[in-house]
């Protein structure tokens, strides 16, 4: 499984996530909704872990628990050796070691792209403003964003916006990037460009990536591993190793191994989607 490309990368030692027996029950006005059911996932440092599952199964819920946006009902979540949440603190503290890239994007529209990217370090206050802006500019240049520094997010294409948001996340030197279907709204051509761009960024800044998606092709192209979730309440249903070596480019999409993995995953995903659909029919 360890191929040439992978061995060339420096070893990532930080950013392992361990989800242990996490349960999340939403209880607005007594109508308990179980979103996550005794879910355990181990993600080694530096892995791109793709979470695939039917609509409404509880993927965002799990991501929000890691990010610290809401509490869990029971269970533990660890980042390396640090317990983010457990029996004593059910809600993790949000922190710059875990940055979320949201489904609809959350760049601040009133700040220019450069100011957006500088936001995290400015809040941290360790570096001077000019050091931060220099770093931001060079990160933008690396990501092919030169020339858009002084534009507002609303003035650039949605593909560029996504890239700005990823660079903004990376400026915080996170251990983990949490993606909640960031490319859902993009057309498939832009998407393929974004995938290669994301991998390129990843090869330069190895972090752990927790990536939620509906799109199997995206999942297999990007991921070291696919975790296919059951319909709600969510827990891992099947884990698929993507033994295609990194660095990858779009040519792997047509490789026979890609097709094989796709076929293996498709059956499970379809089955769960059908369960979710049937459950929805019963409820609705």
């Amino acid at each position: 499984m360890n191929m040439m490309g992978e061995e060339m990368q420096p070893e990532v030692t930080k950013g392992a996530i361990r989800i242990e027996d996490v349960v999340k029950i939403y209880d607005p006005d007594g109508a308990a909704v179980m979103a996550v059911d005794h879910c355990s996932i181990d993600i080694p440092a530096g892995e791109i872990c793709m979470i695939v599952g039917p609509s409404g199964c509880g993927k965002t819920t799990l991501l929000n628990a890691i990010a610290g946006f809401h509490d869990v009902t029971s269970g533990h979540i660890y980042l390396d050796d640090e317990m983010l949440c457990g029996p004593d603190n059910r809600k993790a503290e949000p922190g710059s070691d875990r940055i979320v890239v949201f489904q609809n994007g959350a760049l601040f529209p009133w700040k220019t792209n450069l100011e957006n990217i500088a936001f995290g370090p400015m809040m941290e206050g360790k570096l001077s403003k000019s050091e931060i802006y220099d770093k931001a500019r060079s990160m933008m240049a690396d990501a092919g964003l030169s020339g858009t520094e002084n534009s507002y997010p609303g003035e650039v294409s949605s593909g560029l916006r996504r890239r700005v948001e990823i660079v903004r996340a990376l400026m915080n030197d996170p251990k983990v990037l949490l993606f909640d279907e960031p490319y859902r709204a993009l057309d498939s051509l832009t998407k393929s460009v974004m995938h290669e761009a994301l991998l390129e960024i990843y090869y330069k800044n190895k972090v752990t990536i927790f990536f939620i998606t509906h799109d199997l092709e995206e999942a297999i192209f990007l991921g070291h591993r696919l975790i296919i979730m059951s319909s709600r309440p969510c827990k891992p249903k099947k884990i698929v190793d993507v033994d295609i070596p990194h660095p990858r480019d779009y040519s792997v999409l047509t490789s026979p191994r890609f097709r094989e993995i796709m076929n293996e995953a498709k059956g499970v995903v379809h089955e769960e989607a059908k369960k979710a659909f049937d459950a929805g029919e019963k409820e609705g």
Binding site: F119, M123, N172
Partner: peptide
């Protein structure tokens, strides 16, 4: 947008920063 607040919080913004800058 709640996610503006969440993003700012993740990036280490204080309550006052969130009020003033978000």
């Amino acid at each position: 947008n709640k996610q503006f607040l969440q993003a700012a919080q993740s990036m280490g913004a204080s309550q006052w920063d969130i009020f003033r800058r978000i």
